[in-house]
Design a binder for these strands. Structure first.
Lengths: 243, 243
DNA sequence: GCAAAAGTGTTTGACATACACCCATGT
DNA sequence: ACATGGGTGTATGTCAAACACTTTTGC
């Protein structure tokens, strides 16, 4: 099994160019503006989507200015709630980059967040859900999105964060759909179920869901500790990482 | 193989408490002080050490204020060079945390860095090399150090960053010593060599090194692409991660 | 009875682990 | 000749991958 370095972005090769680098000198060293920027994902019937919010003329990732606290993760959650109306099921800091935008030097702390689809559509707050391939974004937003996707694809392979994308009760097919949407390729049903059963704390509820002219699916519940996202299934991710 | 989530620190449970949280309100939101803090490691004959520099009364991790640039990694390198006199062989951003120190809200961007031992001692600049267990540090420095160690231990298992701790020519025993120093437990010599040979781009130089009353060791050179740190040897790391 | 998705086992290959002896040198 | 670290191969088990058919329901 070969894995490429998921943290490759840190190496600087993918860093933003500084088109107006002279403007950067305007602000005193050590006191840049700081903002938090979040790639919020959800899976809506088999498709992975990112949340975008209106920013002046166009759309961009949800973002905001942190208040003076020691807990940046909590600030990310607050900003997400204020900006999109969604309550995250999972938040993880990604990395921090310098950005030169509108003549201001800004330090952007980027986050990955996940929500389960809530209710009929997943359009609660004032945000749009776009397919991850689609949107033309600013350079910085695009970087954050790309890296968030990379991390999500890698991490779904060895943690249980995928359950954060599903409602409390779900079918194994829905879980598999989430994996396939994120990885971008199909996975084997039998191997998938075996591994999930072995590695993730899920239990069959006994209830079934009928939704077509076919055998109904068993509903499962996830019983994982929220703080210890545990190991799950590396090997499928390898394909996605190689790409 | 079970792996725990190496990024667990992001989940907030290990975040700093805010003992003087009222002081945080002094500074306007979005314009905290920003500083870069670096856990710089080296292996000195079989022992893993961290670089500390003098900060007023005591010692702490190398740190500094970034200049207004888009490339924070480059700033980390510069600060490291200025503060310790060492030129890093490897730098990787870890995570960013809020710190309340000396009545100032500071956003600390933390880094992991590695250097090869240079020359007879590894004491070039104005820094001290301490064993990783030893030093009493500030809460923030300790967090950065702990997390850097966690990442280093995990990452040494599936990348080739260990070569960044060695001089250009090295024996396989030296490489193994570096692994054992970082992981904190011995590894099997034959399995180690097999895996290194299979997974890492190294070549025997044909030269030998005589250093005792025993058979001389073959010297090897590492031929890896600096930007693509490739896969190497997961399984030993699992032990360290479980701890 | 047929279409449509749910559910279920076995075989095979790859790879990690454990483990013990001979080799080259200096004294 | 002996002490010291350098260097090498095999046997075993675990685990992921590939793969096809039966079951239950709605129409």
């Amino acid at each position: 099994m070969i894995q490429t370095d998921v943290s490759g972005l840190h190496q600087g090769s993918a860093m933003l160019d500084a088109p107006g680098a002279d403007a950067l000198t305007d602000r005193p060293a050590g006191f840049p503006a700081v903002d938090i920027r979040i790639a919020l994902f959800s899976v809506e019937n088999g498709a992975l989507r990112v949340a975008l919010v209106r920013h002046g003329s166009g759309y961009g990732l949800p973002r905001g200015v942190p208040r003076a606290t020691v807990n940046l993760d909590a600030e990310a959650r607050r900003i997400l709630r204020d900006d999109t109306g969604h309550i995250d099921q999972y938040v993880e800091q990604l990395y921090t980059l310098g950005v030169d935008s509108e003549r201001t030097w800004t330090v952007v702390i980027s986050y990955l967040a996940l929500v389960a689809p809530d209710g009929p559509g997943i359009d609660a707050g004032g945000c749009e859900w776009r397919l991850v391939a689609e949107p033309p974004l600013t350079e910085a937003d695009q970087m954050v999105l790309d890296y968030a996707l990379l991390r999500l694809r890698a991490k779904i392979g060895y943690t249980t964060i995928a359950f954060r994308l599903l409602p409390p009760m779900f079918t194994l097919r829905e879980l598999q759909d989430a994996y396939e949407a994120i990885l971008g390729h199909p996975v084997d049903k039998r191997n998938f179920r075996r591994r999930v059963a072995a590695a993730a704390p899920i239990e069959a509820t006994g209830e079934r869901r009928r939704d077509g002219s076919h055998r109904p699916a068993e509903l499962y519940r996830y019983h994982g500790d929220r703080s210890t996202e545990t190991y799950l299934t590396p090997p499928w991710a390898a394909d996605a990482e190689r790409g």
